[in-house]
């Protein structure tokens, strides 16, 4: 006969209590995201229209659209990608696959983590003094992209390292045992396997970068500039800064509030679309280089 015991009851009670704690906590994280999204959506979707995303702001930013800011943000995303991706991925590869001397490896890792911890306003200040003033790029897409690129760099490096670390060593050994060099092994076997994960990390880092305000404040963002940029030395408007302006220092803050929420909604949508794209690409490449 199988009997109920007192200690058995107790451990099952403990089990279900802990299970509910975990369940409630993780669901509350999801709830927070949904509340933010719902809030922004309810407040912002009224102003959302085709004109809103294809027209310039008018009447002191109290009506009209946010087209220049969308274009500006897309420029900055593309620009920062161009700088951060190759440098970050190559640095990550170096540090994980090549750096043989352990102290150097650890030093680079600590410095990368420190870089990730630098407040974004400090990046903005640094970008202003180096790119805008010292190198003379002025307030420009180039200066802003470089600054945002620096901000994204540690994330890209760490994602690359972590993705490479997830590649089973047996693949490296198999390749080396066939007379392949380290570079052949890295570029033909290890990198393709790690690529889907690296890509996801890259796109997620874009999500972060596209919402940053502080780094573009002194380096590129224009308060009001209905004209589209004609090159990388032009200033642009950008969504996060535009949102900041509309919410705090517009001509009529009360009147432009709905537009502010609309702007927030567009910004969030861009980030969500990026994340969606990351998943689609990861699944595509993940199938191509399926490990198991």
């Amino acid at each position: 006969m199988i009997k109920q015991t007192k200690s058995g009851k107790r451990k099952r009670l403990n089990q279900s209590i802990m299970f509910w704690v975990f369940r409630v906590l993780s669901l509350s994280v999801v709830a927070v995201l949904f509340i933010i999204l719902a809030f922004i959506f309810i407040k912002g979707f009224k102003v959302l229209s085709w004109d809103f995303i294809t027209q310039s702001p008018t009447e002191g930013m109290t009506s009209g659209g946010i087209y220049p800011a969308i274009i500006g943000t897309l420029w900055l995303i593309a620009g920062s990608m161009v700088f951060a991706f190759p440098i970050g991925v190559l640095a990550g590869i170096y540090n994980h696959e090549y750096a043989a001397w352990k102290p150097l490896k650890v030093f680079i890792r600590i410095m990368t983590n420190n870089l990730a911890g630098v407040p974004s306003i400090v990046f903005g200040l640094f970008g202003m003094s180096l790119f805008v003033n010292k190198l003379g790029f002025g307030d420009s897409i180039l200066a802003g992209s470089l600054t945002l690129g620096l901000l994204a760099l540690p994330v890209v490096i760490r994602t690359t390292e972590e993705s490479l670390a997830a590649v089973d060593n047996s693949f490296r050994r198999a390749s080396l045992a066939l007379g392949a060099t380290k570079w052949q092994t890295t570029s033909r076997v290890v990198f393709p396997i790690a690529f889907p994960n690296i890509l996801t990390g890259l796109i997620l880092s874009i999500g972060r970068v596209s919402g940053e305000t502080a780094p573009i404040l002194f380096t590129v963002a224009a308060y009001f500039l209905p004209k589209l940029p004609s090159g990388i030395f032009d200033q642009v408007m950008a969504l996060p800064y535009h949102l900041y302006v509309l919410a705090t220092s517009g001509i009529d803050v009360e009147k432009s509030r709905p537009i502010a929420y609309g702007t927030a909604l567009v910004l969030i949508m861009i980030v969500l679309i990026m994340n969606l794209l990351a998943n689609v690409l990861r699944n595509y490449f993940g199938r191509k280089y399926k490990v198991k």
Partner: peptide, 15 residues
């Protein structure tokens, strides 16, 4: 290693 090939304990084909 071109002269001396190797087969490992766990099958490890590339993906």
């Amino acid at each position: 290693r071109k002269k001396v090939g190797m087969v490992f304990q766990k099958p490890n084909p590339f993906p």
